Simulated scan of single mutants.
Amino acid sequence: MDEPEWWPKGIVKVPFDAALDGEVITSFGRLNIWNTNSCLDKDWWNKQPSEGKILGDWPEVKVLEIIQFDRNGILLNLNGTHIVRISPFEVGDDVSRMVRHEPWKQALSEQPVLLPSMIWTVSGNDRIIIYPCSILLGKQESHSMRFRISESVGQIHKTLDQFATPNTERRWNDRMNDIEAALKTNTLWRAPHSKFTVGLPRLNFDIDSITIIEGKPCLLPQPRALSEHLLCQSDRLPGLANLMMLERQWAEVESHNEQSRQQFLQSWLDNAPSSYSNSKALSTLRGGPWIWRYHATLNLLAQAIIYSDEELEKSSKIWLSDVSRLQAHLGVLRFWKSGLWAGVTGLIVAFFSWQLESLSPTISAIIAAVSLFFAIGSNQLYWSKDPKPY
C-alpha cells in the first residue's frame, strides 16, 4: 500500500502497512493512530460509532467524495455541502474544546470563523471534524487575499482577548528550547515577553483551511499540527504566534518583502485589541513578531523533517541562518543595555562616596552626573536601535 501524504515517513520506525492502528514509534516520540480506511467508505457513515463522544448531529451521507490526502490528514466532501477533516493521529482536542466551551463558542458566533457542525472525539482526541461549507481556498487564492484574512484573524483575536491568560514567558521559552533540542538547530532565541503578550484559546489556523462565506474569508479551526504535538507542550500561545505561522506558510508560496510584512501585520493590528499595538508588545528586543516568525519556522522545519520535504527543509534552514544576523544585532544592543546598569552603579558609588566623605562633594557630583548621562544615553540608544517588527 502506498504511503499517504499524512504519513510521517521521515521519522517513523515501522512501515505504513504495519501501523494502521495502535501505537507508532518515531524518532521524535510515540504516536497513537487509528484506522481511517473504513470511514472512507460511504456505508460506514450509516451508523454512528459507539465509542467516544459526538458533538452535534451525525450526518446522513448520500454522497461521499475524497478531496485529498494532506499532511494534516484526509479531507472529504459530504453531500456537496460539508467538508470533513479526518485526523489519523491523536493530537488532542483543541477544536472540540472550542465547541464545548459555551462562552468561547458564543463569542465567536458573529466572527469570521466557521466552527464545526459535528465532531467525533475519542479519549480526548478529535478524530472527525465536519464543517458546514463546501469549498476551501487554494494556497494561491488565500495568498491573494492575505491582508483581508489578516484583518479577520485580528477580529477573532479581539473577541477571544476577554478569555486571555497572562504572559507565560517561561513556558514559551521552554517550548523554543524543546524544539531547538529536538531539531538540533544552531540557533537559540529566548525573549522577555511583554505583559501585553497574552495567551489565547487555540484555533490553529492554517492557510489550507480557509473558506468564503458571503464574499468574505472565513477561517476553520484545525487540530494541532503533528510537529507541535510531538515536540511541544499543549500551551496557549499569543495571537501573534498563529498570525506569524500564516505569514511563514504563505512565504513558501511567494517570498514576502518588508512592505508586504508590514501591511500584513498592520492589517491584523488595526483589528486586534489596542494593547497588542503597544510598543513593548511589538518590540523585537522583547520578542515581538520576529520571535514568533522564528517559532513558526522551527515548526516548518520540523514538518519538513517529519514528512521528508527537502525543499521546505532547505528554505527553513536558510531562513534560520539569516536570523542569526538579527540575533547578533540584538547581542550588540544587550551590550548597550548593560550601560544602564553601569550608570546606576556609578550613581550608587557617587552617593555613598559623598555620604562617607571618601570623595569631595564636587567629584561625587561629577561622577553622579556622568553616570546619569551614561545610563540615560545607553538606555535611549538601546531602544532606538530596536529592529522593526516587520
Rank of each mutant, 00 (worst) to 15 (best):
D206L: 10
D206E: 13
D206C: 14
D206K: 11
D206N: 15
I207M: 11
I207T: 14
I207K: 13
D208S: 14
D208R: 13
D208P: 00
I210H: 01
I210W: 01
T211N: 09
I212N: 07
I212W: 07
I212L: 15
I213Y: 01
E214M: 02
E214F: 01
E214V: 01
G215S: 08
G215C: 06
G215I: 00
K216M: 04
K216P: 01
P217S: 03
P217H: 06
P217L: 02
C218H: 03
L219D: 01
L219W: 01
L219P: 02
L220I: 14
L220Y: 04
P221L: 12
Q222T: 11
P223D: 02
R224H: 03
R224K: 13
A225V: 07
A225S: 15
L226S: 05
L226K: 07
L226G: 07
S227A: 15
S227K: 05
E228C: 08
E228I: 06
E228F: 04
H229P: 01
H229R: 13
H229K: 14
L230V: 14
L230F: 08
L230D: 08
L230E: 08
L231P: 04
L231M: 09
L231S: 08
L231F: 07
L231E: 04
L231W: 08
C232I: 05
Q233H: 14
Q233F: 10
Q233C: 06
S234P: 00
S234T: 07
S234G: 03
S234W: 05
D235N: 15
D235M: 14
R236K: 15
R236A: 13
R236N: 10
L237A: 11
L237D: 02
P238S: 11
P238H: 09
G239H: 11
G239F: 09
L240A: 11
L240Q: 09
A241G: 04
A241M: 04
A241C: 12
A241S: 15
N242V: 15
N242R: 07
N242L: 12
N242H: 10
L243S: 04
L243H: 04
L243W: 00
L243G: 05
M244Q: 09
L246V: 04
L246K: 01
L246E: 01
L246P: 08
E247H: 08
E247T: 03
E247L: 09
E247M: 09
E247S: 12
E247W: 00
R248A: 07
Q249E: 15
Q249A: 10
Q249G: 05
W250A: 00
W250V: 00
W250L: 01
W250R: 02
A251I: 01
A251F: 08
E252T: 05
E252L: 08
E252G: 03
V253D: 11
V253I: 12
V253P: 05
E254Y: 03
E254D: 06
E254R: 11
E254I: 00
S255N: 09
H256R: 10
H256Q: 13
H256N: 05
H256C: 05
N257M: 03
N257S: 09
N257H: 08
N257Q: 10
E258S: 13
Q259K: 09
Q259N: 10
S260V: 11
S260L: 02
S260W: 12
S260G: 00
R261D: 09
R261F: 00
R261N: 15
R261L: 10
Q262Y: 11
Q262D: 11
Q262A: 07
Q262C: 09
Q262H: 14
Q263K: 11
F264H: 13
F264E: 06
L265Q: 12
L265P: 13
L265T: 12
